[in-house]
């Protein structure tokens, strides 16, 4: 095959076909990445009036500064714990729905698309949605009032401790369909003959899920975990819409922190160092994801 391409003596056709992709990647990914590295190593702010290629080289100074910044570290920790809570809850919901739905359920064909609607909705609309139901006079306060049998009127978004709750819930709501979809397709693909054989041999329900289903799902669960973590690093829209990181800095996530320091305060170098730290973390996660994907493919 390769002879056939080379014979013409021109640029091989497969390279030509891949060229547009590579150009886009170069301009939108590689150049910005190099710029991030450069910014993070110099002291550059647009307000200084010096071009970025003439800025003073400060080596790792920005990295030390941002790692010493309590606000940044807290934003990182907060993002991690938001994503851990989300992952836990989403997996529980996803696994529960998926395992029931694999059974013999009436109306399966309608329920399935209905259940995954949240993943199709623009995040900003989801933010809006949770703004409505968590408003002071909204249904959530009403339901809590009925359950507690007293007047309950929290203003969720300005409460220092509770403000994070609508954000976490909206994240869960947005992304549970992903874990559900992944687990569902995993469960469907387990061959029924194997399960039937185990049942004939007298396996209990617990043994069935722990000994047969879980090992088969392990690869798929890893993929779901890693991809969901990647998405969690991106949490921004909802925070920007609902709380603006407030009250104070109580609901700031990594993405919102970078946005605030980059766009409000124009501290380009400082934020670039932060961005590079995040990119590094993502890269680590990403290589994990790729490995599990490759293992899965084999």
């Amino acid at each position: 095959m390769s002879e056939r391409i080379k014979r013409k003596g021109k640029i091989p056709v497969n390279i030509i076909m891949l060229l547009p992709t590579n150009i886009i990647i170069l301009f939108l990914i590689i150049i910005p990445t190099i710029l991030v590295i450069w910014f993070s190593l110099v002291n550059f702010q647009p307000t200084f009036g010096i071009n970025f290629w003439q800025s003073k080289f400060v080596f790792l100074d920005n990295y030390f500064k941002i790692l010493m910044d309590d606000e940044f570290v807290k934003a990182v920790i907060r993002t991690v714990y938001i994503s851990l809570i989300c992952l836990g809850v989403e997996f529980t919901i996803g696994l529960l729905i998926a395992s029931i739905l694999t059974g013999n359920i009436h109306g399966k064909k309608i329920l399935y698309p209905l259940l995954i609607i949240p993943i199709m909705i623009p995040p900003i609309v989801i933010g809006n949605n949770f703004w409505l139901i968590f408003s002071a006079n909204g249904p959530v306060n009403q339901i809590i009032s009925i359950i507690l049998n007293t007047e309950f009127k929290a203003s969720w978004f300005s409460h220092p401790k509770y403000a994070i709750i609508p954000i976490i819930l909206s994240e869960i709501w947005h992304w549970y369909p992903l874990t559900f979809l992944i687990l569902f397709s995993g469960l469907v693909n387990i061959s029924t003959s194997e399960i039937r054989a185990a049942k004939i041999l007298g396996a209990t329900e617990w043994q069935l899920s722990w000994r047969i289903k879980f090992p088969k799902l392990k690869g798929i669960i890893t993929i779901a975990l890693v991809i969901r973590m990647m998405e969690a690093l991106k949490v921004f829209d909802v925070v920007h819409l609902l709380t603006h990181g407030g009250p104070g800095t109580r609901t700031q996530t990594i993405s919102f922190y970078l946005f605030k320091y980059g766009f409000k305060y124009s501290r380009i170098s400082y934020v670039s160092a932060g961005a590079w730290i995040i990119l590094f973390i993502s890269l680590l996660g990403f290589s994990l994801a790729l490995r599990s994907v490759l293992v899965e493919r084999k």
Binding site: I25, L28, I29, I31, P32, T33, L35, V36, F39, F52, M230, L233, K234, F236, I254, S255, F256, L258, F259, G262, I268, V271, S272, G274, A275, W276, I278, L279, S282, L283, G285, F286, A289, L290
Partner: peptide
Amino acid sequence: IMPRMFPPMAMIIPLMIF
């Protein structure tokens, strides 16, 4: 695949200057 794995916010500032 890599670009999609990065949080967009980390890429936006250099992209904006570019």
